[in-house]
Amino acid sequence: MSNATAGTAATHRAATPKGEHADEFHIHPHISSTALNAKVLGALYFFTFLTVLAYRVDLGNANLAVATLISVAKSFLVCAFFMHLRYEKAFMSVALLGGIVCMGLFFGYTLNDTDHRGEANPFSSTRYNQVTGKYAHGTPEWIEKNGFVEVTAKFDEAEQKALEATGETPAEAAKAAGLPAGDAAKAAATPPGESAAKANPEGAAGAAAANGKGTKAGSATAGDASSDAGKAAPDAGAAKGGGGATKGSAGAAKGSAGAAKGSGGARPTR
């Protein structure tokens, strides 16, 4: 086999430069000049600044589209010039285009499903089905069970104690978290399925339930804790339960407890 190959090569060499493969033996690359590469780099810098400027304008949902378009333009420059695709044989681009088509299928099919699962709540980002009034897929289980209060995180008990030692009041904590009590109450009241009749039966059951849950929430999620705090607040006897719930949870939960106090009826509903 090596003889045959060597023979073929020898033929090519003998035939060069007049043979049919005259142009294929040596590589004849496109050599990009420094000036061209520098111009491409300049354009890429320009688009980078443009994308930063574009995001500072509130275009609503169009912001993502604009950012994507600018990124596609930058990618085109990199592929065409830096990666020499512009000067290559077409079959090099086929691999890239094939990948892009597959990506399109991937995105299209997935979003066709996931982006049509009810409306998003602007405050909580949870989605609910407008027909049933229930939370849609993509909503964490604990929100489905306990309703939503805008809480992101929990503290360690040690951290919580350290916070308490500084003498911060719930209102201050809420302020530190950037959540005016009123806003927090509004947010708490916003989750879907408005009717109070549908409210969590456990909430109606009162302090005992809230207390038990609060303990659980301390180790689980702050959301549990603060939602129970919200339920407990209107009931004077439940004050302890609410306090217990707050203890194990975050500064933000403190804020929510304050919010519930302020609005009274701001009870998370399904």
Partner: peptide
Amino acid sequence: FKPDAEGMVAIGDAVKLAFHGGGIGYHL
């Protein structure tokens, strides 16, 4: 995901900056 006190303050500031602000959002 478990922000400390400094992280919570940062989240508070970010909420004020975000166009979609209004709630912190559990899904950080």
